[in-house]
């Protein structure tokens, strides 16, 4: 049995995440987009796990969640530091690394 609906949903959520990451300037919202993308992938993994009767996909999704949680911690800390220095959270104003 193919859970096509699940995969289409995961793809849609992923696309929303990508577009959100690219078009929004607020770092918090961008983080949310990233989380969205990760969760879309989790959804896809679980869908496949169920389809293939394998537990691997579920384990993977757990790992992805763990990594996402850790990443949020680091990322939010960075945002706080940047806000303290620049008094703003507009990501387009953070371009010191340009060539």
């Amino acid at each position: 049995m193919v859970h096509l609906e699940i995969q289409v949903l995961a793809f849609l959520i992923l696309t929303i995440g990508i577009v959100g990451f690219l078009v929004r300037k607020n770092p918090i919202v961008m983080f949310m987009s990233i989380e969205l993308m990760l969760n879309a992938v989790n959804l896809s993994l679980i869908g496949f796990a169920d389809e293939l009767k394998s537990v691997d996909g579920q384990i993977f999704s757990l790992i992805v969640m763990t990594v996402a949680a850790a990443e949020v911690v680091v990322g939010l800390a960075i945002i706080v530091v940047i806000f303290r220095v620049k008094k703003s959270t507009d990501v387009d104003s953070i371009d010191l690394l340009k060539g």
């Binding site: 300037k25 961008m30 990501v91 371009d95 010191l96 340009k98």
Partner: peptide, 17 residues
């Protein structure tokens, strides 16, 4: 090439995608 590397996270993101 340096023109492309403008330091903006979102343009990097666009390139990655």
């Amino acid at each position: 090439v340096t023109m492309k590397q403008d330091g903006k996270i979102r343009s990097y993101g666009l390139m990655v995608f």
